[in-house]
Amino acid sequence: MNAAALDRFLASVEGRAFRLARYAVRDDDEALDIVQDSMMTLAGKYAHKAEHEWAPLFFRILHNRIRDWHRRASVRRRVFALFRPRAESGQELDPVQLAVDGPHVEPDHVNRMSAAARRLERCLTELPVRQREAFLLRAWEGLDVAQTAAAMGCSEGSVKTHYSRAVHRLREQLKDDWP
């Protein structure tokens, strides 16, 4: 196993992996945990594989960790919903409470972003999960269709469909605010 090559590979993907996870879970700390877990799994189990296999493997692990996170979150929501008092119908939700309970994103990060990037990130978080993954893996990570299919655990046809829909949807949403 070439440790220097693994270090280079992880350094090249860590930022994008972190943000990909953040778009999915909308929480910096959770996203960092997911990336850490993915890196450790790749290093522990797959570092001996050929270097050209690392990218699809890493993003497949990341994809699985994100999916696991959503499953756990779904279970948590269902359990807590059992004990939460039901709101009266028509009652307005407290925006302050929503802000407190909402996703945790570093404010510095938001301030540094340009308006276009902010708009783009918001649109990305609003995309369906599979469309966002297909789009980011293809357009941002630079994986080809076969590698993206391997990373997402689906067929190449599905990747093409998700990617095409994502591009169409993003272009529709960004047409007024896109440079």
Binding site: M1, A3, L6, D7, L10, A11, E14, G15, R16, F18, R19, D28, L32, V35, Q36, M39, M40, L42, A43, G44, A47, E106, D108, H109, R112, M113, S114, A116, A117, L120, E121, W140, P179
Partner: peptide
């Protein structure tokens, strides 16, 4: 556009630490 958005220093440092730990494990 996405590449132009930098990570904040704290997150970058945490990611680098995680990466070193992973490489050491490998």
């Amino acid at each position: 556009v996405l590449d132009g958005v930098p990570l904040d220093a704290e997150t970058a440092a945490r990611l680098a630490a995680v990466r070193r730990h992973a490489v050491e494990r490998a």
